[in-house]
Design a protein around this nucleic acid. Structure first.
Lengths: 93, 93
DNA sequence: CCATCATATTGATGATTATCTATATGATTG
DNA sequence: CAATCATATAGATAATCATCAATATGATGG
């Protein structure tokens, strides 16, 4: 994946909080809204769509709800790319 | 270093290009301006200051010129932090 | 000290983006 | 099918940010 898209997706505090909550957890949208507190449901949906378009979350529908979880493989791949491009001398030390 | 500051510093195409040019190279500001092409000197200075405040570049004055190079250690540390926070299950696989 | 060169800062402007309210879509249940 | 619940989308607004031209700062050489 693209380093720029990855960085842009991560460059927002609310999205990083959402990513933390979705790390190792499946949560539906209203769960995320509740965990964050003080952020509206449309705003959360917007951030989730940014993360989805960047390939950083998995999604699964279950009845009326849609569950999200963090795609750790994608994060790991992107971090690897960043290392290769911007820290090539630090790989494998 | 802070994951949010790191992501914000990387979330711009021009800054990523600058970082590529500074990777394994010491360049002065006017060198960077020349390498980029089509970007003004004040804009380059601005981006370099963002990178400097994020701790992502080394600087060295030499006479009238100021040389910059990418701080690969900082990049590697930040990528490690991102991995720990957002891909903990993928560490050491 | 003055002129010059390299870089930084200021101030303005346009583009992007985060956020909200209101509303639409889509699935479930009676 | 109607009502309801969960999520997404649309449209508006405010904040952030990238960029440039103009100017300031700071070092060097005569």
């Amino acid at each position: 994946m693209n380093s720029l898209i990855f960085a842009k997706a991560m460059a927002d505090e609310t999205r990083q909080k959402i990513m933390s909550h979705l790390c190792c957890n499946w949560l539906c949208v209203s769960d995320v809204v509740e965990k964050l507190g003080g952020v509206s449901q449309p705003t959360v949906s917007h951030h989730l769509s940014v993360l989805r378009e960047a390939g950083l979350v998995h999604t699964r529908r279950e009845g009326k709800q849609i569950f999200y979880s963090l795609n750790q493989d994608a994060v790991a791949t992107c971090c690897g790319t960043l290392m290769q491009v911007f820290a090539p001398e630090k790989i494998g030390i």
